[in-house]
Write a protein that binds this DNA or RNA. Structure first.
Lengths: 329, 329
DNA sequence: CGGTTTCGTGTAACCGGTTACATAAAAAAT
DNA sequence: ATTTTTTATGTAACCGGTTACACGAAACCG
């Protein structure tokens, strides 16, 4: 690998001059510039970013920390982040935290030791963590503790919409799954749906669930249908759980959506591929990733921020696990 | 951020001694060691990895380049890679190449400039790229050009199994989808299935398809059922395509698996969640990721390698888009 | 007890960039 | 023609670690 000194020697100038050409700073005579550029070309030189980073205390790296990339919701986020960073010449260092505070801390440390310019993360221990006063900018994505810059979908409104839509489409005995206590978005959804159901004329049943796992959800589904056989509408805490319920319902021979409506949350890619395709409350995951990257970049460049907490809109995606709405609305 | 010199001052020793304590090299008196450790504790010091990396020309970073993390096959690979690297104290720098040679090159460059110790990638331009003699170790994963260290599933055998199983389960008029020309695993599967079909007694029809996209596949499916209405067994080029076909078949009211059997490839997480769940040829994606990481680490540490090209076994995952096999086999 | 060997520690060069500062030549201003 | 300003370039310190080398003290040895 050629160094800046090699280039300087070939071009017959000092390293400072080469550096000036590289960074387009200070004065360089046009002829000199050409010679340097030729030398660079000839040696196939490209600057050592590590050396740069050491001197400047900066880099072009951003740390991204997600609970688990194999959870189908997260790749979209990651992709959004990457695409936006890429546009601005930044790159991604990535880790899975597994909702494990220790791993999380370990990664944050590693990131810092490597001069990342900022961190985007979906936090785990909701509430507990407070990263105000952290030496580098941090943006929380999806799972967001209070008081820090964040990008998240409007879970409460999502819950409301889910309840509203399922009622509007004629469910009379709704089941609402509560979702994990420690996951903020799950609780927001729950609160929104609860609010709407409370103000409605339908009976409803709240079932406590404490994970987003497909396995667990399959069991709850069985339990649910045993306990509350005549429920005719289920609001699941996310699409994975909704899928498990859909499965169990089909296995039991329930007609969907005529006999039972199901609404999920997230709109993960597979939701549209189920049979019947799942109606759900969509989070704009890709855009949330982009937005988080944008916010972080602004923080890094110390640009004026009009909104440190970006709430993204959710939408109802009507597919075939809900009925067509009555003409009378 | 405290530096090694701060620590040295507090401990009343030279930086060299601190460095010796840090790296457990050379002689350090036990008492001195304690003092240094205390100073480290007191200052909450952790070494600057960038400075280390600059001097040693090494790092603990590995570059991972995948076509698109939102493609459901890849997160598993990524996770496998990450978990294995993590165990050995290495970390991941990640990029999406979008099957775009330029992006790919750009990333490889960025990786190099940042002293990554090795690269794991799913290559795009099959065949064209040759990275022998590359200055740092490189392992190809899933999409593998010849002659370089690689980890991949046995696509040919997978194709054979798929054909064998679908025939064994009674399909008489099989359709085989060819899959994209430029994606090596797709061609391997195709060749394997073709071989087995050719040696069999069933009629079959080969349909050219040139992408793994769900959208495209939905169209081909429509075409397929129009042209070849009485096909009773379809071997898709991967699970996404199989899903599209399943969809279209259900829409047309085909009874599955009685009237039509479908086999996919990959066993992406959603395949088991479809209704009916998809029978498929499973690639051990997570393990492939792990294996690639292991191979790369060996290459980096210049350990003896017994196998530079690791072929992973595929298995038939029997779900409900294929019939139970006849008792007579 | 003098000569080796083993310990223990410090000084300073080095990794490959960036940049403050010095200096000189060229151009512009007086 | 002299002074001032602008342009052009080089020297060397610096970022924060690691390590070759030097040197003195302690331990070992016959």
């Amino acid at each position: 690998m050629a160094t800046i000194r090699d280039v300087a020697k070939v071009a017959g100038v000092s390293v400072a001059t080469v550096s000036r050409v590289l960074n387009e700073t200070g004065y360089v005579h046009e002829n000199t510039r050409k010679r340097v550029l030729e030398a660079i070309e000839q040696l196939d030189y490209s600057p050592n970013e590590v050396a740069r980073s050491l001197f400047k205390g900066e880099s072009r790296w951003i740390g991204l920390l997600l609970p688990d990339i194999t959870n189908p919701f997260f790749p979209q986020l990651a992709r959004g982040v990457e695409d936006e960073l890429q546009k601005h010449g930044f790159h991604l260092i990535f880790g899975n935290s597994d909702e494990n505070a220790e791993k999380e801390l370990h990664y944050i440390n590693t990131f810092m030791q490597n001069h990342v310019m900022g961190i985007i993360m979906a936090a785990n221990q909701s509430g507990k963590a407070d990263y105000r006063g952290f030496p580098i900018p941090m943006v929380f994505l999806d799972r967001t503790p209070d008081g820090n810059p964040s990008v998240y979908a409007d879970g409460v409104e999502g819950g409301r919409i889910a309840a509203r839509e399922i009622i509007r489409r004629g469910s009379k005995r709704v089941t609402l799954l509560k979702g994990p206590e420690h996951i903020r978005p799950a609780q927001d959804r729950f609160r929104g749906a609860l609010e709407e159901l409370s103000n409605s004329h339908v009976d409803f049943y709240v079932m406590n669930t404490h994970s987003f796992s497909f396995q667990d959800a399959t069991q709850w589904a069985a339990e649910l249908f045993a306990k509350y056989a005549d429920t005719d509408g289920i609001i699941a805490s996310n699409d994975v759980v909704a899928t498990a319920i859909l499965h169990e319902a089909l296995r039991l021979g329930k007609r969907i959506p005529d006999e039972l409506q199901i609404i999920g949350f997230d709109d993960i890619p597979q939701s549209g591929l189920l049979f019947p395709p799942l109606s759900t409350i969509r989070q704009p995951a890709y855009d949330m990733g982009k937005e988080a990257a944008r916010l972080l970049l602004k923080l890094i460049k110390k640009e004026k921020i009009d909104q440190r907490n970006v709430q993204m809109p959710v939408t109802f995606v009507e597919r075939l696990t809900t009925r067509k709405v009555d003409a009378r609305g």
